[in-house]
């Protein structure tokens, strides 16, 4: 399709979004990610019945934790699309990239970089 999408995100493949856990999302932020988005199948279309619903709940939990610790819950988001929707996948990545640029860098990463510089 040769669709244009930002080059600054890394795709981590999962057997099903139901595999994702809150800790996976938090670790990404701990390692310096500025944002995380989870792309699952359309709701009701999960091959394992409820994987994408589980993922949505866990994304919400991670978002609440990030809000409480001051990193920002809006840095995580769950999207749903079908495997045939390549253009939508590209559109979501552009949308997320734009949103994260507006929010600025992950404050945890910024603090770590400042500490390294000082040292």
């Amino acid at each position: 399709m040769r669709l244009k999408c930002p080059a600054n995100f890394r795709i981590i493949r999962l057997p099903c979004t139901g595999k994702i856990d809150v800790i996976h999302i938090l670790r990404a932020f701990e390692k310096g990610a500025d944002g995380v988005y989870v792309v699952g199948c359309m709701e009701g279309d999960c091959h394992f019945k409820s994987g994408n619903f589980r993922a949505r709940k866990r994304v919400e939990q991670a978002s609440k934790i990030l809000d409480k610790i001051g990193v920002g819950g809006e840095r995580v988001k769950m999207y749903n699309l079908s495997s045939g929707e390549g253009p939508l996948f590209a559109q979501y990545s552009i949308e997320m990239d734009k949103k994260i640029r507006e929010l600025g860098p992950n404050p945890v990463k910024t603090a770590l970089q400042a500490k390294k510089k000082a040292a």
Partner: peptide, 19 residues
């Protein structure tokens, strides 16, 4: 174990952010 991991990660990030 899972809750320990999540809490530890959240606390680490919070305190790093606070310097």
């Amino acid at each position: 174990k899972k809750e320990v991991e999540v809490l530890a990660s959240a606390l680490r990030m919070h305190f790093i952010k606070e310097g």
